[in-house]
Write a protein that binds this DNA or RNA. Structure first.
Lengths: 124, 124
DNA sequence: CTGTATCCTAAAGGATACTG
DNA sequence: CAGTATCCTTTAGGATACAG
């Protein structure tokens, strides 16, 4: 897994510098990442299974991998709470929280787009 | 290719309605789409090869497929200009242009993130 | 100039079962 | 509760060659 963003599209052979846009796209381009970030923005810290319920449809394995990736990229904090049984809390770092602007913009565009293109029941 | 957004993550088995966020994520989650939209935002209408030059590193095939997808989703207009040789111009529809907010937010987050995480030359 | 047609591979994602 | 371990399928993406 590349964390530098060097594998981001548009970086060519290195002659051109990494594009900020592509760095963000690499992060939010993973299938479940935007949703996970969005859920954490709304709900604050959550345990693994709480998160899994809210991110409907994701499997254990994929959620686990996604969280690992988000943690490596410094968007998510993982805190082990040493109860019995062990609890783990996932929450956003400052970087994760600063994605709120992006996520909000995405959500609003999506709303408008759905209103215009998705209203047709035949589309369902 | 699903255009309805029903295959978007978080839509589960259909009990929950499609999430606007996931619709946007499905569009901008394709590897080259954000960059293509961004280039068209900056440059306005462009021909196939002009586009290809600016979206550094993309292959003919992938650019072609991406443009087909963006056209189907009503983000991009394709205009055939009947010169000899034939020219084709790609430009953003109103929906494409309305992504500017999203793209800008992504770009700015990316800048800040790179400043904080990518300054280290060892990261390259 | 603007693409298609093939072919190929790496990687992401999903189903299921099992563990500390 | 919070994950790993396998195994498997799909597909996005890339290289290359050719075509209208």
């Amino acid at each position: 897994m590349d964390l530098t963003g060097n594998d981001a599209p548009g970086c060519g052979t290195g002659r051109r510098r990494r594009r900020p846009l592509s760095v963000t796209a690499t992060v939010l381009g993973k299938k479940w990442h935007p949703l996970i970030v969005s859920v954490l923005l709304e709900a604050g810290a959550l345990g693994f299974n709480e998160l899994k319920e809210r991110v409907q449809g994701i499997s254990d394995k994929v959620l686990s991998e996604s969280l690992d990736d988000l943690e490596e990229r410094d968007l998510v904090d993982r805190t082990v709470i040493d109860d019995k049984p062990v609890r783990v809390e996932y929450s956003l770092t400052e970087w994760g929280e600063q994605l709120e602007l992006v996520v909000t913009a995405m959500d609003e565009w999506g709303k408008r787009y759905l209103d215009a293109h998705g209203t047709d029941p035949a589309a369902d």
